[in-house]
Design a protein around this nucleic acid. Structure first.
Length: 325
DNA sequence: TCACGCATGTCACATAGTGC
DNA sequence: GCACTATGTGACATGCGTGA
Protein backbone atom coordinates (compact mmCIF):
# COMPACT_ATOMS: atom_id res chain seq x y z
CA UNK A 1 0.00 0.00 0.00
CA UNK A 2 3.03 2.13 0.05
CA UNK A 3 2.55 3.27 3.56
CA UNK A 4 5.30 3.36 6.06
CA UNK A 5 4.06 0.54 8.14
CA UNK A 6 6.05 -0.81 10.96
CA UNK A 7 8.07 2.30 11.10
CA UNK A 8 8.29 5.05 13.59
CA UNK A 9 8.28 2.72 16.47
CA UNK A 10 7.88 4.14 19.89
CA UNK A 11 10.81 3.87 22.16
CA UNK A 12 9.84 1.84 25.14
CA UNK A 13 11.81 -0.34 27.39
CA UNK A 14 11.33 -3.69 28.94
CA UNK A 15 9.37 -5.22 26.14
CA UNK A 16 9.17 -8.92 26.48
CA UNK A 17 8.74 -11.21 23.61
CA UNK A 18 6.99 -14.42 23.00
CA UNK A 19 9.17 -17.43 23.39
CA UNK A 20 10.35 -18.30 19.94
CA UNK A 21 9.58 -21.76 18.89
CA UNK A 22 11.03 -23.71 16.06
CA UNK A 23 8.28 -24.90 13.85
CA UNK A 24 8.83 -28.37 12.60
CA UNK A 25 7.77 -29.13 9.07
CA UNK A 26 5.32 -31.61 10.42
CA UNK A 27 3.87 -29.05 12.75
CA UNK A 28 3.58 -26.41 10.09
CA UNK A 29 1.92 -28.81 7.72
CA UNK A 30 -0.43 -29.92 10.45
CA UNK A 31 -1.32 -26.32 11.13
CA UNK A 32 -1.95 -25.49 7.50
CA UNK A 33 -3.92 -28.66 7.01
CA UNK A 34 -5.93 -27.83 10.08
CA UNK A 35 -6.81 -24.44 8.69
CA UNK A 36 -7.66 -25.94 5.34
CA UNK A 37 -9.92 -28.54 6.87
CA UNK A 38 -11.54 -26.04 9.17
CA UNK A 39 -12.12 -23.63 6.37
CA UNK A 40 -13.84 -26.25 4.30
CA UNK A 41 -16.70 -26.35 6.74
CA UNK A 42 -17.15 -22.60 6.83
CA UNK A 43 -19.17 -20.28 4.71
CA UNK A 44 -17.76 -18.32 1.83
CA UNK A 45 -17.06 -15.09 3.68
CA UNK A 46 -15.56 -16.83 6.63
CA UNK A 47 -13.10 -14.77 8.62
CA UNK A 48 -10.50 -16.23 10.87
CA UNK A 49 -10.94 -15.07 14.39
CA UNK A 50 -8.82 -15.44 17.43
CA UNK A 51 -10.88 -18.34 18.72
CA UNK A 52 -10.12 -20.25 15.55
CA UNK A 53 -6.42 -19.69 15.99
CA UNK A 54 -6.86 -20.79 19.57
CA UNK A 55 -8.49 -23.98 18.45
CA UNK A 56 -5.66 -24.60 16.08
CA UNK A 57 -3.19 -24.00 18.87
CA UNK A 58 -5.05 -26.54 20.96
CA UNK A 59 -4.95 -29.03 18.14
CA UNK A 60 -1.24 -28.48 17.71
CA UNK A 61 -0.62 -28.87 21.39
CA UNK A 62 -2.62 -32.04 21.47
CA UNK A 63 -0.85 -33.43 18.47
CA UNK A 64 2.68 -32.31 19.15
CA UNK A 65 2.67 -31.08 22.72
CA UNK A 66 4.60 -28.11 21.52
CA UNK A 67 3.13 -25.66 23.98
CA UNK A 68 2.35 -23.18 21.28
CA UNK A 69 0.17 -20.21 22.02
CA UNK A 70 -2.62 -18.97 19.85
CA UNK A 71 -0.64 -15.83 19.18
CA UNK A 72 2.22 -17.88 17.84
CA UNK A 73 -0.12 -19.90 15.72
CA UNK A 74 -1.66 -16.71 14.40
CA UNK A 75 1.70 -15.25 13.62
CA UNK A 76 2.88 -18.42 11.92
CA UNK A 77 -0.28 -18.51 9.87
CA UNK A 78 0.21 -14.93 8.86
CA UNK A 79 3.82 -15.60 8.04
CA UNK A 80 2.79 -18.14 5.49
CA UNK A 81 0.11 -15.88 4.24
CA UNK A 82 2.76 -13.25 3.67
CA UNK A 83 4.83 -15.75 1.79
CA UNK A 84 1.88 -16.75 -0.26
CA UNK A 85 1.21 -13.17 -1.20
CA UNK A 86 4.73 -12.84 -2.50
CA UNK A 87 4.38 -15.99 -4.52
CA UNK A 88 1.00 -14.97 -5.78
CA UNK A 89 2.15 -11.51 -6.69
CA UNK A 90 5.11 -12.90 -8.51
CA UNK A 91 2.91 -15.25 -10.43
CA UNK A 92 0.61 -12.44 -11.41
CA UNK A 93 3.29 -9.94 -12.16
CA UNK A 94 3.65 -9.23 -15.81
CA UNK A 95 7.36 -8.71 -15.45
CA UNK A 96 7.81 -12.22 -14.26
CA UNK A 97 7.75 -14.99 -16.72
CA UNK A 98 6.32 -18.37 -16.15
CA UNK A 99 7.46 -21.40 -17.98
CA UNK A 100 4.54 -23.75 -17.92
CA UNK A 101 6.60 -26.64 -19.14
CA UNK A 102 9.27 -26.37 -16.51
CA UNK A 103 7.02 -24.64 -14.02
CA UNK A 104 9.75 -22.12 -13.78
CA UNK A 105 9.37 -18.59 -12.61
CA UNK A 106 11.55 -15.74 -13.70
CA UNK A 107 11.48 -13.27 -10.92
CA UNK A 108 12.32 -9.67 -11.52
CA UNK A 109 11.98 -8.26 -8.05
CA UNK A 110 14.76 -8.76 -5.56
CA UNK A 111 12.63 -9.42 -2.57
CA UNK A 112 10.44 -11.80 -4.44
CA UNK A 113 13.44 -13.50 -5.88
CA UNK A 114 14.79 -14.15 -2.45
CA UNK A 115 11.74 -16.12 -1.60
CA UNK A 116 11.02 -17.65 -4.93
CA UNK A 117 14.50 -18.62 -5.96
CA UNK A 118 14.21 -21.53 -3.62
CA UNK A 119 11.60 -24.16 -3.12
CA UNK A 120 8.62 -22.70 -1.39
CA UNK A 121 7.44 -24.75 1.45
CA UNK A 122 3.81 -25.78 1.57
CA UNK A 123 2.98 -24.20 -1.74
CA UNK A 124 0.06 -26.55 -2.11
CA UNK A 125 -1.33 -25.83 1.33
CA UNK A 126 -0.90 -22.11 0.98
CA UNK A 127 -2.59 -22.14 -2.36
CA UNK A 128 -5.55 -24.02 -1.03
CA UNK A 129 -5.77 -22.01 2.13
CA UNK A 130 -5.10 -18.51 0.93
CA UNK A 131 -6.19 -18.45 -2.66
CA UNK A 132 -9.20 -16.21 -2.93
CA UNK A 133 -9.69 -16.19 0.77
CA UNK A 134 -8.84 -12.65 1.68
CA UNK A 135 -11.27 -11.80 4.33
CA UNK A 136 -11.75 -8.18 3.54
CA UNK A 137 -11.40 -8.60 -0.18
CA UNK A 138 -9.17 -5.59 -0.36
CA UNK A 139 -6.30 -7.65 -1.62
CA UNK A 140 -8.19 -9.95 -3.87
CA UNK A 141 -6.04 -10.98 -6.73
CA UNK A 142 -6.39 -12.81 -9.92
CA UNK A 143 -5.85 -16.42 -9.07
CA UNK A 144 -5.89 -17.64 -12.56
CA UNK A 145 -2.22 -17.55 -13.12
CA UNK A 146 -1.50 -19.32 -9.95
CA UNK A 147 -0.32 -22.82 -10.45
CA UNK A 148 -0.54 -26.00 -8.61
CA UNK A 149 2.91 -27.33 -8.56
CA UNK A 150 2.94 -30.13 -6.13
CA UNK A 151 5.08 -32.63 -7.85
CA UNK A 152 6.26 -35.18 -5.46
CA UNK A 153 7.90 -37.44 -7.97
CA UNK A 154 9.83 -34.84 -9.85
CA UNK A 155 13.50 -35.16 -9.23
CA UNK A 156 14.79 -32.53 -11.59
CA UNK A 157 15.12 -29.64 -9.24
CA UNK A 158 18.82 -29.72 -8.92
CA UNK A 159 19.72 -27.05 -11.36
CA UNK A 160 19.20 -24.00 -9.26
CA UNK A 161 16.15 -23.13 -11.23
CA UNK A 162 13.11 -21.49 -9.87
CA UNK A 163 11.42 -24.69 -10.50
CA UNK A 164 8.27 -24.37 -8.53
CA UNK A 165 7.45 -27.92 -9.29
CA UNK A 166 9.58 -28.62 -6.31
CA UNK A 167 8.08 -26.05 -4.03
CA UNK A 168 5.91 -28.48 -2.28
CA UNK A 169 8.67 -30.88 -1.61
CA UNK A 170 10.07 -29.88 1.72
CA UNK A 171 12.15 -33.00 1.84
CA UNK A 172 14.52 -31.55 -0.65
CA UNK A 173 15.10 -28.42 1.24
CA UNK A 174 18.38 -28.43 3.00
CA UNK A 175 17.29 -25.75 5.37
CA UNK A 176 14.57 -27.95 6.58
CA UNK A 177 16.93 -30.14 8.37
CA UNK A 178 16.29 -27.84 11.21
CA UNK A 179 17.04 -28.83 14.68
CA UNK A 180 13.58 -28.11 15.70
CA UNK A 181 12.70 -27.21 19.18
CA UNK A 182 12.28 -30.46 20.93
CA UNK A 183 8.63 -30.15 21.69
CA UNK A 184 8.56 -28.78 25.15
CA UNK A 185 5.87 -30.57 26.94
CA UNK A 186 4.58 -27.53 28.63
CA UNK A 187 3.85 -24.11 27.40
CA UNK A 188 6.84 -22.18 28.43
CA UNK A 189 5.19 -18.88 28.63
CA UNK A 190 7.09 -17.81 31.60
CA UNK A 191 9.41 -15.68 29.60
CA UNK A 192 6.69 -13.91 27.79
CA UNK A 193 5.05 -10.95 29.27
CA UNK A 194 1.42 -11.25 30.00
CA UNK A 195 0.72 -8.19 28.01
CA UNK A 196 2.72 -6.87 25.17
CA UNK A 197 0.07 -4.45 24.10
CA UNK A 198 1.43 -1.02 23.66
CA UNK A 199 4.95 -2.15 24.29
CA UNK A 200 7.32 -2.04 21.44
CA UNK A 201 10.80 -3.29 21.26
CA UNK A 202 13.02 -0.33 20.68
CA UNK A 203 15.24 -0.51 17.69
CA UNK A 204 18.63 -1.81 18.51
CA UNK A 205 17.57 -3.52 21.64
CA UNK A 206 18.27 -7.15 21.96
CA UNK A 207 15.47 -9.55 21.43
CA UNK A 208 15.02 -11.54 24.59
CA UNK A 209 13.37 -14.46 22.95
CA UNK A 210 16.20 -16.31 21.39
CA UNK A 211 18.43 -16.21 24.38
CA UNK A 212 15.68 -17.35 26.60
CA UNK A 213 15.04 -20.23 24.38
CA UNK A 214 16.57 -23.32 25.84
CA UNK A 215 19.18 -25.10 23.85
CA UNK A 216 17.73 -27.80 21.72
CA UNK A 217 17.96 -31.15 23.32
CA UNK A 218 19.97 -33.77 21.64
CA UNK A 219 18.36 -35.90 19.02
CA UNK A 220 18.03 -38.89 21.30
CA UNK A 221 16.06 -36.90 23.81
CA UNK A 222 14.07 -35.38 21.05
CA UNK A 223 13.27 -38.75 19.58
CA UNK A 224 12.39 -40.14 22.96
CA UNK A 225 9.97 -37.33 23.55
CA UNK A 226 8.42 -37.76 20.18
CA UNK A 227 8.04 -41.46 20.71
CA UNK A 228 6.44 -40.98 24.08
CA UNK A 229 4.16 -38.33 22.68
CA UNK A 230 3.19 -40.64 19.89
CA UNK A 231 2.60 -43.45 22.34
CA UNK A 232 0.43 -41.20 24.45
CA UNK A 233 -1.49 -40.23 21.41
CA UNK A 234 -1.95 -43.83 20.40
CA UNK A 235 -3.13 -44.75 23.85
CA UNK A 236 -5.63 -41.92 23.70
CA UNK A 237 -6.81 -43.06 20.34
CA UNK A 238 -7.18 -46.64 21.45
CA UNK A 239 -9.10 -45.54 24.48
CA UNK A 240 -11.30 -43.23 22.46
CA UNK A 241 -11.40 -44.57 18.96
CA UNK A 242 -12.10 -41.83 16.52
CA UNK A 243 -15.16 -42.03 14.38
CA UNK A 244 -14.67 -44.00 11.24
CA UNK A 245 -13.06 -41.94 8.58
CA UNK A 246 -15.34 -40.69 5.90
CA UNK A 247 -15.44 -42.78 2.83
CA UNK A 248 -12.96 -41.21 0.49
CA UNK A 249 -14.72 -39.71 -2.40
CA UNK A 250 -12.57 -39.91 -5.47
CA UNK A 251 -12.86 -36.73 -7.34
CA UNK A 252 -10.53 -35.92 -10.15
CA UNK A 253 -9.41 -32.36 -9.41
CA UNK A 254 -8.58 -31.92 -13.04
CA UNK A 255 -11.86 -33.08 -14.43
CA UNK A 256 -12.74 -29.61 -15.58
CA UNK A 257 -9.36 -29.25 -17.22
CA UNK A 258 -9.85 -32.41 -19.22
CA UNK A 259 -13.24 -31.17 -20.33
CA UNK A 260 -11.81 -27.85 -21.38
CA UNK A 261 -9.07 -29.52 -23.36
CA UNK A 262 -11.59 -31.82 -24.90
CA UNK A 263 -13.58 -28.81 -25.98
CA UNK A 264 -10.65 -27.26 -27.80
CA UNK A 265 -10.89 -27.18 -31.56
CA UNK A 266 -8.00 -29.54 -32.11
CA UNK A 267 -7.83 -33.01 -33.48
CA UNK A 268 -8.52 -36.02 -31.34
CA UNK A 269 -4.94 -37.12 -31.71
CA UNK A 270 -3.75 -33.81 -30.41
CA UNK A 271 -6.11 -34.08 -27.49
CA UNK A 272 -4.71 -37.49 -26.72
CA UNK A 273 -1.19 -36.14 -26.87
CA UNK A 274 -2.07 -33.23 -24.63
CA UNK A 275 -3.89 -35.46 -22.19
CA UNK A 276 -1.09 -37.95 -22.18
CA UNK A 277 1.45 -35.25 -21.56
CA UNK A 278 -0.51 -33.59 -18.80
CA UNK A 279 -1.38 -36.91 -17.27
CA UNK A 280 2.20 -37.68 -16.43
CA UNK A 281 3.05 -37.48 -12.82
CA UNK A 282 5.95 -35.11 -13.37
CA UNK A 283 3.60 -32.65 -15.02
CA UNK A 284 1.33 -32.30 -12.06
CA UNK A 285 2.45 -28.73 -11.62
CA UNK A 286 1.44 -27.83 -15.13
CA UNK A 287 -1.89 -29.52 -14.60
CA UNK A 288 -2.50 -27.49 -11.51
CA UNK A 289 -1.52 -24.29 -13.22
CA UNK A 290 -3.79 -24.94 -16.16
CA UNK A 291 -6.64 -26.13 -13.99
CA UNK A 292 -6.71 -22.77 -12.30
CA UNK A 293 -6.12 -20.80 -15.44
CA UNK A 294 -8.57 -19.19 -17.78
CA UNK A 295 -9.73 -20.93 -20.92
CA UNK A 296 -7.63 -18.66 -23.05
CA UNK A 297 -4.54 -19.52 -21.05
CA UNK A 298 -5.21 -23.20 -21.47
CA UNK A 299 -5.78 -22.75 -25.14
CA UNK A 300 -2.66 -20.67 -25.57
CA UNK A 301 -0.61 -23.19 -23.68
CA UNK A 302 -1.91 -26.04 -25.79
CA UNK A 303 -1.15 -24.19 -28.97
CA UNK A 304 2.27 -22.96 -28.01
CA UNK A 305 4.05 -24.84 -25.29
CA UNK A 306 2.46 -28.17 -25.87
CA UNK A 307 3.10 -27.99 -29.57
CA UNK A 308 6.70 -28.88 -28.87
CA UNK A 309 5.63 -31.93 -26.99
CA UNK A 310 3.32 -32.87 -29.80
CA UNK A 311 6.18 -32.69 -32.24
CA UNK A 312 8.22 -34.98 -30.04
CA UNK A 313 5.39 -37.44 -29.72
CA UNK A 314 4.59 -37.43 -33.36
CA UNK A 315 8.19 -37.94 -34.24
CA UNK A 316 8.32 -40.87 -31.84
CA UNK A 317 5.16 -42.30 -33.29
CA UNK A 318 6.51 -41.93 -36.76
CA UNK A 319 9.56 -43.87 -35.62
CA UNK A 320 7.33 -46.52 -34.16
CA UNK A 321 7.75 -45.47 -30.57
CA UNK A 322 5.33 -45.71 -27.72
CA UNK A 323 2.95 -42.88 -27.06
CA UNK A 324 3.29 -43.10 -23.34
CA UNK A 325 7.01 -42.81 -23.20
C1' DT B 1 -22.28 9.14 12.61
C1' DC B 2 -18.65 7.90 15.38
C1' DA B 3 -15.81 5.35 18.46
C1' DC B 4 -14.05 1.04 19.33
C1' DG B 5 -12.38 -3.65 18.67
C1' DC B 6 -10.63 -6.93 15.70
C1' DA B 7 -8.50 -9.03 11.64
C1' DT B 8 -5.20 -8.30 8.38
C1' DG B 9 -1.21 -6.35 5.66
C1' DT B 10 3.27 -4.92 5.97
C1' DC B 11 7.75 -3.59 7.51
C1' DA B 12 11.47 -4.08 10.88
C1' DC B 13 14.24 -6.62 13.86
C1' DA B 14 16.67 -10.60 16.46
C1' DT B 15 18.82 -14.79 16.15
C1' DA B 16 20.72 -18.92 14.04
C1' DG B 17 22.69 -21.06 10.18
C1' DT B 18 25.66 -21.08 6.14
C1' DG B 19 29.15 -19.92 2.80
C1' DC B 20 33.22 -17.33 1.82
C1' DG C 1 34.87 -12.75 11.05
C1' DC C 2 31.68 -11.00 7.83
C1' DA C 3 27.82 -10.99 4.75
C1' DC C 4 23.79 -13.04 3.56
C1' DT C 5 19.66 -15.81 4.22
C1' DA C 6 15.94 -18.12 6.81
C1' DT C 7 12.91 -18.10 10.45
C1' DG C 8 10.13 -16.26 13.97
C1' DT C 9 8.21 -12.36 16.12
C1' DG C 10 7.04 -7.32 17.26
C1' DA C 11 4.57 -3.54 16.09
C1' DC C 12 2.11 -0.08 13.40
C1' DA C 13 -1.36 1.09 9.71
C1' DT C 14 -5.54 0.17 7.59
C1' DG C 15 -10.16 -1.37 6.78
C1' DC C 16 -14.35 -3.49 8.28
C1' DG C 17 -17.99 -4.72 11.51
C1' DT C 18 -20.64 -3.45 15.40
C1' DG C 19 -22.91 -1.06 18.98
C1' DA C 20 -24.15 3.29 21.17
Amino acid sequence: MGKAKGKGKVETEGSSRERSISWDDEQTKFMLDWYIEYKKDQHANFIWKSQHHMKCADALNKEFAMGVTSAQVTRHYRHYKENWKIVETALNKSGNGFDAIKCKLTISVDRDRRLLSKPIKYFHEMQELFSGSNADGSLAMDQQTCCDVDNKSDSSDDEGLNDISSYARPIDIAAEDSDTLPSPTCADNGSSGTSRAGKKRPRGSKSPSKKQQPKPKNRFTDATEKISNTMDHLVDQLGNPPPPPPVPQFCDPYASLWKRIDALPISTNDKVVVGNYLGRQENEGVRGFLASSADTTVETWVYSSCAIEMQHVYSRISRGGNLTT
